[in-house]
Nucleic acid binder design. Sequence first.
DNA 1: AGTCGGTTCGG
DNA 2: CGAACCGAC
Length: 474
Amino acid sequence: MTRSEQIVLHWFRRDLRLTDNTALHFACEQSTQVIPVYILSTWSGEHRFTGPMRQDFLCGCLKSLNANLAAKGSRLVLREGDPAAALISLARETGAKAIYYNRDPDPHGRLVEKRLASEIATNGLRSFAFDDVTVHTPSEVLTVAGQPYRIFTPYSRAWRLVPKKSLLPPPRISELDSRNFPGGKLPNGLPLPDLSRWALSKEGSIIEPGERAARRRMNAFLSEPILRYAQLRDLASEEATSRLSQDLRFGLISPRELHTKAVALLENPGLDASEIRSIQTFLTELIWREFYFALLWHYPEVLEVEFNPKFRRIPWVTNNEALARWKEGTTGFPFVDAGMRQLLATGFMHNRLRMITAMFLTKDLHLDWREGEMFFMQKLVDGEIASNNGGWQWSAGTGADAAPYFRIQNPWSQSSRFDPEGRFIKRWVPELRDVPFASLHQPPWNGPLARGYPMPIVDHAAERQKCLDMFASR
DNA sequence: AGTCGGTTCGG
DNA sequence: CGAACCGAC
Protein backbone atom coordinates (compact mmCIF):
# COMPACT_ATOMS: atom_id res chain seq x y z
CA MET A 1 0.00 0.00 0.00
CA THR A 2 1.30 3.46 -0.78
CA ARG A 3 1.34 6.06 1.90
CA SER A 4 -0.07 8.86 -0.17
CA GLU A 5 -3.53 10.05 0.84
CA GLN A 6 -4.46 6.77 2.38
CA ILE A 7 -7.23 6.82 4.99
CA VAL A 8 -7.52 3.75 7.26
CA LEU A 9 -9.45 2.71 10.36
CA HIS A 10 -7.77 1.40 13.48
CA TRP A 11 -10.30 -0.79 15.21
CA PHE A 12 -9.57 -0.71 18.97
CA ARG A 13 -10.72 -3.89 20.72
CA ARG A 14 -8.75 -5.22 23.69
CA ASP A 15 -5.71 -3.04 22.95
CA LEU A 16 -6.79 0.22 24.57
CA ARG A 17 -3.38 1.93 24.48
CA LEU A 18 -1.21 4.02 22.16
CA THR A 19 2.15 2.58 23.26
CA ASP A 20 3.64 -0.50 21.54
CA ASN A 21 0.33 -1.27 19.86
CA THR A 22 1.14 -3.41 16.81
CA ALA A 23 -1.83 -2.71 14.54
CA LEU A 24 -1.95 0.96 15.47
CA HIS A 25 1.76 1.30 14.75
CA PHE A 26 1.40 -0.14 11.25
CA ALA A 27 -1.80 1.79 10.60
CA CYS A 28 0.12 5.00 11.29
CA GLU A 29 3.13 3.91 9.31
CA GLN A 30 1.22 2.82 6.21
CA SER A 31 -1.33 5.61 5.88
CA THR A 32 -1.73 9.34 6.11
CA GLN A 33 -4.90 9.37 8.20
CA VAL A 34 -5.92 6.95 10.93
CA ILE A 35 -9.47 7.01 12.21
CA PRO A 36 -9.59 5.43 15.69
CA VAL A 37 -12.79 3.49 16.29
CA TYR A 38 -14.30 1.31 19.01
CA ILE A 39 -17.50 -0.69 18.55
CA LEU A 40 -19.75 -0.86 21.62
CA SER A 41 -21.82 -3.94 22.41
CA THR A 42 -25.60 -3.61 22.54
CA TRP A 43 -26.74 -6.26 25.04
CA SER A 44 -28.58 -5.18 28.15
CA GLY A 45 -29.02 -6.53 31.68
CA GLU A 46 -27.45 -9.88 32.56
CA HIS A 47 -24.53 -11.24 30.56
CA ARG A 48 -22.97 -14.69 30.85
CA PHE A 49 -19.40 -13.47 30.54
CA THR A 50 -19.25 -9.99 32.01
CA GLY A 51 -20.86 -7.68 34.55
CA PRO A 52 -20.85 -4.16 35.97
CA MET A 53 -17.33 -4.15 37.38
CA ARG A 54 -15.58 -5.03 34.12
CA GLN A 55 -17.90 -2.87 32.00
CA ASP A 56 -17.20 0.05 34.32
CA PHE A 57 -13.48 -0.49 33.91
CA LEU A 58 -13.99 -0.58 30.13
CA CYS A 59 -15.86 2.75 30.27
CA GLY A 60 -12.95 4.32 32.15
CA CYS A 61 -10.45 2.93 29.65
CA LEU A 62 -12.40 4.32 26.69
CA LYS A 63 -12.58 7.71 28.35
CA SER A 64 -8.85 7.66 29.00
CA LEU A 65 -8.08 6.47 25.46
CA ASN A 66 -10.22 9.27 24.07
CA ALA A 67 -8.30 11.82 26.16
CA ASN A 68 -4.96 10.39 25.03
CA LEU A 69 -6.10 10.62 21.42
CA ALA A 70 -7.31 14.17 22.01
CA ALA A 71 -3.78 15.07 23.13
CA LYS A 72 -2.69 13.94 19.64
CA GLY A 73 -5.35 16.06 17.93
CA SER A 74 -7.87 13.28 17.53
CA ARG A 75 -10.66 11.47 19.35
CA LEU A 76 -12.22 8.04 19.54
CA VAL A 77 -15.11 7.40 17.15
CA LEU A 78 -17.66 5.20 18.92
CA ARG A 79 -20.13 3.07 17.03
CA GLU A 80 -22.26 0.14 18.12
CA GLY A 81 -23.68 -3.18 17.03
CA ASP A 82 -22.24 -5.86 14.80
CA PRO A 83 -18.56 -4.94 14.37
CA ALA A 84 -18.36 -6.03 10.72
CA ALA A 85 -21.38 -3.96 9.70
CA ALA A 86 -20.37 -0.96 11.79
CA LEU A 87 -16.79 -0.93 10.49
CA ILE A 88 -17.81 -1.29 6.87
CA SER A 89 -20.31 1.50 7.13
CA LEU A 90 -17.78 3.77 8.84
CA ALA A 91 -15.25 3.00 6.11
CA ARG A 92 -17.80 3.93 3.49
CA GLU A 93 -18.62 7.23 5.24
CA THR A 94 -15.00 8.26 5.60
CA GLY A 95 -13.48 6.92 2.41
CA ALA A 96 -11.21 4.61 4.40
CA LYS A 97 -9.67 1.87 2.30
CA ALA A 98 -8.46 -0.50 5.01
CA ILE A 99 -9.17 -1.69 8.52
CA TYR A 100 -6.27 -2.38 10.91
CA TYR A 101 -6.79 -4.40 14.08
CA ASN A 102 -5.09 -6.70 16.55
CA ARG A 103 -6.43 -10.25 16.63
CA ASP A 104 -8.46 -11.35 19.64
CA PRO A 105 -7.58 -15.02 20.11
CA ASP A 106 -10.60 -16.12 22.12
CA PRO A 107 -13.42 -17.97 20.34
CA HIS A 108 -15.73 -14.96 20.26
CA GLY A 109 -13.02 -12.71 18.86
CA ARG A 110 -12.12 -15.28 16.22
CA LEU A 111 -15.74 -15.56 15.12
CA VAL A 112 -16.10 -11.80 14.71
CA GLU A 113 -12.89 -11.67 12.68
CA LYS A 114 -14.09 -14.43 10.41
CA ARG A 115 -17.31 -12.54 9.69
CA LEU A 116 -15.44 -9.32 9.09
CA ALA A 117 -13.07 -11.02 6.67
CA SER A 118 -15.88 -12.50 4.62
CA GLU A 119 -17.93 -9.29 4.47
CA ILE A 120 -14.97 -7.06 3.75
CA ALA A 121 -14.05 -8.94 0.59
CA THR A 122 -17.31 -7.99 -1.10
CA ASN A 123 -16.90 -4.33 -0.16
CA GLY A 124 -13.63 -3.47 -1.84
CA LEU A 125 -11.91 -3.01 1.50
CA ARG A 126 -8.78 -4.61 2.88
CA SER A 127 -8.00 -5.62 6.41
CA PHE A 128 -4.67 -6.02 8.17
CA ALA A 129 -4.63 -8.15 11.31
CA PHE A 130 -1.75 -8.40 13.82
CA ASP A 131 -0.80 -10.55 16.79
CA ASP A 132 -0.59 -8.43 19.88
CA VAL A 133 -2.37 -10.02 22.84
CA THR A 134 0.38 -12.47 23.77
CA VAL A 135 4.16 -12.49 23.40
CA HIS A 136 3.87 -15.66 21.30
CA THR A 137 0.94 -16.95 19.29
CA PRO A 138 -0.33 -20.50 19.87
CA SER A 139 1.28 -21.70 16.64
CA GLU A 140 4.71 -20.33 17.61
CA VAL A 141 5.04 -22.77 20.52
CA LEU A 142 4.58 -26.37 19.38
CA THR A 143 6.32 -29.68 20.05
CA VAL A 144 8.90 -30.94 17.55
CA ALA A 145 6.07 -33.04 16.11
CA GLY A 146 4.11 -29.84 15.50
CA GLN A 147 1.54 -30.63 18.19
CA PRO A 148 0.28 -28.27 20.91
CA TYR A 149 1.77 -28.80 24.37
CA ARG A 150 -0.61 -30.16 26.98
CA ILE A 151 1.74 -29.89 29.95
CA PHE A 152 2.94 -26.56 31.27
CA THR A 153 6.60 -27.24 32.04
CA PRO A 154 7.65 -28.44 28.57
CA TYR A 155 5.50 -25.67 27.07
CA SER A 156 7.31 -23.07 29.14
CA ARG A 157 10.71 -24.50 28.21
CA ALA A 158 9.85 -24.25 24.51
CA TRP A 159 8.26 -20.80 24.99
CA ARG A 160 11.46 -19.42 26.50
CA LEU A 161 13.47 -20.61 23.49
CA VAL A 162 11.32 -18.88 20.86
CA PRO A 163 13.07 -15.69 19.69
CA LYS A 164 11.36 -12.57 20.98
CA LYS A 165 10.31 -9.75 18.68
CA SER A 166 11.76 -6.37 19.51
CA LEU A 167 9.46 -3.67 20.79
CA LEU A 168 8.03 -1.16 18.38
CA PRO A 169 9.74 2.22 18.46
CA PRO A 170 8.08 4.74 20.76
CA PRO A 171 5.51 6.60 18.66
CA ARG A 172 7.06 9.52 16.85
CA ILE A 173 5.10 12.74 16.92
CA SER A 174 4.68 12.57 13.15
CA GLU A 175 2.96 9.20 13.40
CA LEU A 176 0.43 10.30 15.93
CA ASP A 177 -0.18 13.92 15.07
CA SER A 178 -3.30 15.43 13.65
CA ARG A 179 -2.30 14.62 10.09
CA ASN A 180 -2.77 11.01 11.05
CA PHE A 181 -5.59 11.70 13.46
CA PRO A 182 -7.52 14.53 11.85
CA GLY A 183 -9.80 15.36 14.77
CA GLY A 184 -11.72 18.09 12.99
CA LYS A 185 -12.62 15.85 10.10
CA LEU A 186 -13.73 12.81 12.04
CA PRO A 187 -17.30 11.58 11.65
CA ASN A 188 -19.71 11.69 14.52
CA GLY A 189 -20.15 8.82 16.89
CA LEU A 190 -21.85 7.88 20.12
CA PRO A 191 -20.94 9.63 23.36
CA LEU A 192 -18.55 7.88 25.76
CA PRO A 193 -20.58 5.15 27.47
CA ASP A 194 -21.39 4.61 31.11
CA LEU A 195 -23.00 1.63 32.80
CA SER A 196 -26.50 2.76 31.90
CA ARG A 197 -25.71 1.73 28.34
CA TRP A 198 -26.05 -1.91 29.43
CA ALA A 199 -28.70 -1.16 32.08
CA LEU A 200 -26.15 -2.01 34.79
CA SER A 201 -25.36 -0.33 38.04
CA LYS A 202 -22.16 -0.31 39.97
CA GLU A 203 -21.51 -1.96 43.31
CA GLY A 204 -18.20 -1.46 45.04
CA SER A 205 -15.14 0.31 43.73
CA ILE A 206 -12.60 -0.79 41.13
CA ILE A 207 -8.94 -0.12 40.39
CA GLU A 208 -8.17 3.00 38.32
CA PRO A 209 -8.68 2.39 34.59
CA GLY A 210 -6.73 3.76 31.63
CA GLU A 211 -3.29 3.50 30.03
CA ARG A 212 -1.64 6.05 32.28
CA ALA A 213 -2.72 4.32 35.51
CA ALA A 214 -1.72 0.93 34.07
CA ARG A 215 1.76 2.15 33.12
CA ARG A 216 2.16 3.63 36.58
CA ARG A 217 1.29 0.21 38.10
CA MET A 218 3.67 -1.60 35.76
CA ASN A 219 6.58 0.73 36.50
CA ALA A 220 5.90 0.65 40.22
CA PHE A 221 5.86 -3.16 40.26
CA LEU A 222 9.05 -3.45 38.19
CA SER A 223 10.87 -0.90 40.31
CA GLU A 224 10.92 -3.01 43.48
CA PRO A 225 8.06 -5.42 44.42
CA ILE A 226 8.96 -7.86 41.62
CA LEU A 227 12.19 -8.56 43.53
CA ARG A 228 10.23 -10.01 46.47
CA TYR A 229 7.49 -11.60 44.39
CA ALA A 230 8.44 -15.22 45.08
CA GLN A 231 8.35 -14.83 48.87
CA LEU A 232 5.35 -12.56 49.25
CA ARG A 233 2.92 -13.16 46.39
CA ASP A 234 1.00 -15.91 48.18
CA LEU A 235 0.41 -13.94 51.36
CA ALA A 236 -3.15 -12.72 51.18
CA SER A 237 -2.76 -9.52 53.15
CA GLU A 238 0.51 -8.43 51.50
CA GLU A 239 -0.32 -6.57 48.35
CA ALA A 240 2.60 -8.24 46.65
CA THR A 241 1.10 -9.46 43.40
CA SER A 242 1.65 -7.35 40.30
CA ARG A 243 -2.00 -6.19 40.04
CA LEU A 244 -1.53 -5.96 36.27
CA SER A 245 -4.09 -8.58 35.21
CA GLN A 246 -6.80 -6.13 34.15
CA ASP A 247 -4.18 -4.07 32.32
CA LEU A 248 -3.16 -7.08 30.25
CA ARG A 249 -6.82 -8.00 29.76
CA PHE A 250 -7.65 -4.63 28.19
CA GLY A 251 -4.29 -4.12 26.53
CA LEU A 252 -3.49 -1.02 28.57
CA ILE A 253 0.06 -2.31 28.66
CA SER A 254 1.88 -4.39 26.09
CA PRO A 255 2.71 -7.95 27.16
CA ARG A 256 5.92 -7.67 25.11
CA GLU A 257 6.95 -4.55 26.96
CA LEU A 258 6.22 -6.09 30.36
CA HIS A 259 8.16 -9.24 29.46
CA THR A 260 11.08 -7.32 27.96
CA LYS A 261 11.39 -5.08 31.00
CA ALA A 262 11.20 -7.97 33.46
CA VAL A 263 13.89 -9.88 31.53
CA ALA A 264 16.05 -6.77 31.41
CA LEU A 265 16.02 -6.62 35.22
CA LEU A 266 17.83 -9.96 35.30
CA GLU A 267 20.88 -8.21 33.82
CA ASN A 268 21.29 -6.14 36.97
CA PRO A 269 24.53 -7.42 38.57
CA GLY A 270 23.49 -6.41 42.08
CA LEU A 271 20.72 -9.01 42.44
CA ASP A 272 20.87 -11.77 45.02
CA ALA A 273 19.60 -15.30 44.43
CA SER A 274 16.13 -14.68 45.87
CA GLU A 275 15.65 -11.58 43.72
CA ILE A 276 16.59 -13.52 40.59
CA ARG A 277 14.19 -16.28 41.60
CA SER A 278 11.44 -13.72 42.13
CA ILE A 279 11.81 -12.28 38.63
CA GLN A 280 11.78 -15.78 37.19
CA THR A 281 8.67 -16.66 39.17
CA PHE A 282 6.92 -13.63 37.74
CA LEU A 283 7.99 -14.56 34.20
CA THR A 284 6.56 -18.02 34.79
CA GLU A 285 3.20 -16.42 35.62
CA LEU A 286 3.29 -14.54 32.32
CA ILE A 287 3.96 -17.87 30.58
CA TRP A 288 0.97 -19.45 32.33
CA ARG A 289 -1.13 -16.73 30.74
CA GLU A 290 0.28 -17.61 27.32
CA PHE A 291 -0.19 -21.35 27.98
CA TYR A 292 -3.89 -20.85 28.72
CA PHE A 293 -4.36 -18.72 25.60
CA ALA A 294 -2.71 -21.48 23.57
CA LEU A 295 -4.86 -24.19 25.19
CA LEU A 296 -8.08 -22.33 24.46
CA TRP A 297 -6.91 -21.73 20.90
CA HIS A 298 -6.16 -25.39 20.23
CA TYR A 299 -8.95 -26.86 22.39
CA PRO A 300 -11.91 -24.44 22.38
CA GLU A 301 -14.11 -27.26 23.69
CA VAL A 302 -12.70 -26.61 27.19
CA LEU A 303 -15.36 -23.92 27.49
CA GLU A 304 -17.97 -26.68 27.41
CA VAL A 305 -16.35 -29.83 28.78
CA GLU A 306 -13.57 -31.06 31.05
CA PHE A 307 -10.24 -31.03 29.21
CA ASN A 308 -9.45 -34.48 30.54
CA PRO A 309 -11.96 -36.91 28.98
CA LYS A 310 -11.60 -39.19 32.01
CA PHE A 311 -13.47 -36.66 34.13
CA ARG A 312 -16.31 -35.74 31.79
CA ARG A 313 -18.82 -37.81 33.72
CA ILE A 314 -18.20 -36.52 37.20
CA PRO A 315 -21.63 -36.20 38.85
CA TRP A 316 -21.37 -32.53 39.88
CA VAL A 317 -24.04 -31.66 42.41
CA THR A 318 -26.83 -29.09 41.97
CA ASN A 319 -27.44 -27.16 45.19
CA ASN A 320 -28.68 -23.60 44.75
CA GLU A 321 -28.57 -22.84 48.45
CA ALA A 322 -24.88 -23.80 48.74
CA LEU A 323 -24.05 -21.98 45.50
CA ALA A 324 -25.71 -18.80 46.80
CA ARG A 325 -23.76 -19.01 50.08
CA TRP A 326 -20.50 -19.41 48.15
CA LYS A 327 -21.34 -16.45 45.90
CA GLU A 328 -22.15 -14.09 48.74
CA GLY A 329 -19.32 -15.22 51.01
CA THR A 330 -21.31 -16.77 53.86
CA THR A 331 -19.98 -20.33 53.89
CA GLY A 332 -18.69 -20.07 57.45
CA PHE A 333 -15.13 -20.70 56.20
CA PRO A 334 -13.44 -17.37 56.98
CA PHE A 335 -10.74 -17.50 54.29
CA VAL A 336 -13.20 -18.56 51.56
CA ASP A 337 -15.70 -15.88 52.57
CA ALA A 338 -13.00 -13.20 52.71
CA GLY A 339 -11.94 -13.99 49.13
CA MET A 340 -15.50 -13.93 47.82
CA ARG A 341 -16.24 -10.64 49.54
CA GLN A 342 -13.06 -9.07 48.19
CA LEU A 343 -14.33 -10.07 44.75
CA LEU A 344 -17.79 -8.57 45.32
CA ALA A 345 -16.40 -5.33 46.73
CA THR A 346 -13.58 -4.71 44.27
CA GLY A 347 -13.97 -6.94 41.20
CA PHE A 348 -10.60 -8.45 42.08
CA MET A 349 -9.50 -11.50 44.07
CA HIS A 350 -6.01 -12.42 45.20
CA ASN A 351 -4.68 -15.36 43.17
CA ARG A 352 -4.23 -17.61 46.20
CA LEU A 353 -7.88 -17.00 47.12
CA ARG A 354 -9.02 -17.78 43.58
CA MET A 355 -7.54 -21.25 43.99
CA ILE A 356 -8.97 -21.74 47.47
CA THR A 357 -12.49 -20.54 46.65
CA ALA A 358 -12.48 -22.57 43.42
CA MET A 359 -11.36 -25.73 45.18
CA PHE A 360 -13.95 -25.11 47.86
CA LEU A 361 -16.73 -24.90 45.27
CA THR A 362 -15.63 -28.04 43.45
CA LYS A 363 -14.09 -30.24 46.16
CA ASP A 364 -16.04 -29.27 49.29
CA LEU A 365 -19.43 -28.39 47.79
CA HIS A 366 -18.99 -30.68 44.73
CA LEU A 367 -20.66 -28.04 42.54
CA ASP A 368 -19.97 -27.78 38.83
CA TRP A 369 -16.83 -25.74 38.10
CA ARG A 370 -18.71 -24.09 35.21
CA GLU A 371 -20.93 -22.31 37.78
CA GLY A 372 -17.86 -20.81 39.41
CA GLU A 373 -16.23 -20.02 36.07
CA MET A 374 -19.29 -18.03 34.97
CA PHE A 375 -19.59 -16.20 38.28
CA PHE A 376 -15.94 -15.14 38.15
CA MET A 377 -16.37 -13.88 34.58
CA GLN A 378 -19.35 -11.80 35.70
CA LYS A 379 -17.51 -10.29 38.66
CA LEU A 380 -13.81 -10.01 37.80
CA VAL A 381 -12.51 -6.75 36.33
CA ASP A 382 -9.65 -8.80 34.84
CA GLY A 383 -11.94 -11.64 33.66
CA GLU A 384 -10.13 -13.34 30.81
CA ILE A 385 -11.87 -16.31 29.20
CA ALA A 386 -8.68 -18.31 28.64
CA SER A 387 -7.05 -17.77 32.04
CA ASN A 388 -10.31 -18.09 33.92
CA ASN A 389 -11.19 -21.39 32.27
CA GLY A 390 -7.64 -22.66 32.72
CA GLY A 391 -7.64 -21.72 36.37
CA TRP A 392 -11.01 -23.31 37.05
CA GLN A 393 -10.13 -26.53 35.29
CA TRP A 394 -6.82 -26.53 37.16
CA SER A 395 -8.62 -26.19 40.48
CA ALA A 396 -11.32 -28.69 39.63
CA GLY A 397 -8.61 -31.19 38.72
CA THR A 398 -10.10 -31.71 35.27
CA GLY A 399 -7.77 -29.60 33.14
CA ALA A 400 -4.54 -29.80 31.15
CA ASP A 401 -1.72 -30.31 33.63
CA ALA A 402 -4.21 -29.57 36.39
CA ALA A 403 -3.75 -30.15 40.07
CA PRO A 404 -4.19 -33.92 40.56
CA TYR A 405 -7.67 -34.47 41.94
CA PHE A 406 -6.27 -35.67 45.25
CA ARG A 407 -4.42 -32.38 45.81
CA ILE A 408 -7.15 -30.69 47.82
CA GLN A 409 -6.46 -27.48 49.66
CA ASN A 410 -7.65 -27.37 53.24
CA PRO A 411 -9.22 -23.92 53.75
CA TRP A 412 -8.23 -23.94 57.43
CA SER A 413 -4.56 -24.75 56.96
CA GLN A 414 -4.39 -22.47 53.91
CA SER A 415 -5.40 -19.49 56.01
CA SER A 416 -2.91 -20.31 58.74
CA ARG A 417 -0.17 -20.46 56.10
CA PHE A 418 -1.16 -17.46 53.98
CA ASP A 419 -3.03 -15.20 56.40
CA PRO A 420 -1.55 -16.19 59.77
CA GLU A 421 -2.69 -13.09 61.66
CA GLY A 422 -6.07 -13.03 59.97
CA ARG A 423 -5.52 -9.55 58.55
CA PHE A 424 -7.01 -10.40 55.16
CA ILE A 425 -9.95 -12.22 56.76
CA LYS A 426 -10.70 -9.35 59.12
CA ARG A 427 -10.46 -6.79 56.37
CA TRP A 428 -13.12 -8.46 54.24
CA VAL A 429 -15.27 -10.18 56.88
CA PRO A 430 -15.86 -7.46 59.43
CA GLU A 431 -18.02 -9.74 61.61
CA LEU A 432 -14.77 -11.51 62.55
CA ARG A 433 -12.79 -8.40 63.57
CA ASP A 434 -12.73 -9.24 67.26
CA VAL A 435 -12.11 -12.97 66.94
CA PRO A 436 -8.62 -14.07 68.14
CA PHE A 437 -6.71 -15.00 64.99
CA ALA A 438 -5.90 -18.56 66.09
CA SER A 439 -9.63 -19.35 66.07
CA LEU A 440 -9.89 -18.37 62.40
CA HIS A 441 -7.80 -21.34 61.27
CA GLN A 442 -9.83 -24.24 62.61
CA PRO A 443 -13.45 -25.33 62.58
CA PRO A 444 -15.27 -23.71 65.51
CA TRP A 445 -16.07 -26.34 68.17
CA ASN A 446 -18.09 -24.09 70.39
CA GLY A 447 -20.76 -22.40 68.26
CA PRO A 448 -20.37 -19.54 65.76
CA LEU A 449 -17.09 -17.57 65.69
CA ALA A 450 -18.98 -14.31 66.05
CA ARG A 451 -22.47 -12.90 66.17
CA GLY A 452 -23.92 -12.80 62.68
CA TYR A 453 -21.30 -15.16 61.24
CA PRO A 454 -22.54 -18.63 60.19
CA MET A 455 -21.25 -22.05 61.20
CA PRO A 456 -19.30 -23.82 58.41
CA ILE A 457 -21.79 -25.18 55.87
CA VAL A 458 -19.85 -28.44 55.50
CA ASP A 459 -17.21 -30.53 57.27
CA HIS A 460 -14.07 -30.23 55.18
CA ALA A 461 -12.58 -33.58 56.21
CA ALA A 462 -15.76 -35.45 55.25
CA GLU A 463 -16.23 -33.61 51.93
CA ARG A 464 -12.58 -34.14 51.04
CA GLN A 465 -13.12 -37.88 51.42
CA LYS A 466 -16.31 -37.76 49.31
CA CYS A 467 -14.40 -35.92 46.61
CA LEU A 468 -11.58 -38.46 46.59
CA ASP A 469 -14.14 -41.27 46.24
CA MET A 470 -16.00 -39.42 43.47
CA PHE A 471 -12.86 -38.95 41.37
CA ALA A 472 -11.24 -42.29 42.16
CA SER A 473 -14.30 -44.18 40.96
CA ARG A 474 -14.07 -42.55 37.49
C1' DA B 1 0.27 -24.57 42.26
C1' DG B 2 -1.43 -30.35 49.14
C1' DT B 3 -2.85 -32.98 52.80
C1' DC B 4 -2.97 -36.77 55.79
C1' DG B 5 -1.47 -40.30 58.63
C1' DG B 6 2.27 -42.91 59.71
C1' DT B 7 7.22 -43.40 61.14
C1' DT B 8 11.65 -41.83 62.67
C1' DC B 9 14.68 -38.94 65.22
C1' DG B 10 16.47 -35.90 68.75
C1' DG B 11 16.02 -33.61 73.07
C1' DC C 1 6.57 -35.56 72.50
C1' DG C 2 7.08 -32.33 68.79
C1' DA C 3 9.54 -31.66 64.45
C1' DA C 4 11.00 -33.74 60.29
C1' DC C 5 10.35 -36.90 56.86
C1' DC C 6 7.81 -40.09 53.75
C1' DG C 7 4.44 -42.50 50.81
C1' DA C 8 -0.35 -42.60 49.34
C1' DC C 9 -4.31 -40.46 47.48
